[in-house]
């Protein structure tokens, strides 16, 4: 077993993660797994509307709330689906909502999930069944390899091309610096 010196490798204890899952058994399972990683606060929403309320409330800046850090949402839910929740997040006017990292969990096949998740602005996708490694990998990827956000007339979300992947075919994007307006955030 690898022994990690936790102080050098960061901690998840200050993180707040929202799990959106209509099926209580699965919500409980996923949140228990996340708790093992040391995530400080895990919130559960049983449906998309409750998730919106929680996200809005936590983004309001009130003294008794912590902003949400990562949203893990199931895709197939009654009324507001995970994809609809994702679209709502990405279309928010508030920066602390629209830039929220979102992981879409789905029971569909991987090709469909990856394509729909990517085209609607998800940061990561997980095809169920979930495993500890899968959850850990996606969280680590969000923290360690964040992608710039891109806004085009029909898309807002993380850059759909990952920097850590090599594309061998011709680059169809023929952009000049005049075509792109860059926002570099500073602390």
């Amino acid at each position: 077993m690898t022994l990690l010196h936790k102080s050098n490798y960061g901690t998840l204890r200050n993180f707040t993660v929202l799990v959106v899952e209509d099926y209580g058994f699965m919500a409980d399972l996923i949140s228990s797994m996340l708790r093992e990683f040391g995530i400080g606060k895990i919130l559960i929403a049983e449906n998309g509307e409750d998730a919106k309320d929680l996200i809005r409330f936590n983004a309001s800046g009130s003294s008794d709330t912590k902003p949400m850090d990562i949203v893990l949402t199931d895709w197939l839910m009654p009324e507001v689906s995970g994809v609809e929740l994702l679209k709502w997040i990405r279309s928010s006017e508030k920066d602390n909502i629209r830039f929220l990292p979102v992981v879409l969990l789905s029971a569909y096949t991987s090709e469909k999930v990856v394509s729909v998740a990517r085209d609607n602005g998800a940061n990561e996708a997980i095809v169920k069944p979930v495993s500890g490694k899968m959850l850990a990998d996606r969280i680590l990827h969000i923290v360690n390899h964040p992608r710039a956000f891109v806004k085009t007339p029909d898309f807002f979300g993380p850059d759909r091309r990952r920097k850590d992947k090599v594309y061998e075919s011709e680059d169809r994007r023929k952009l000049t610096s005049q075509d792109v307006k860059t926002h570099n955030e500073q602390l």
Binding site: F15, V150, V180, H183, L187
Partner: peptide
Amino acid sequence: DNKIELYNRVNRLKLKAGL
């Protein structure tokens, strides 16, 4: 309206992780 906008954000999650 057609211009592409690129947002390079500060990695707050790393800061929150103590890194």
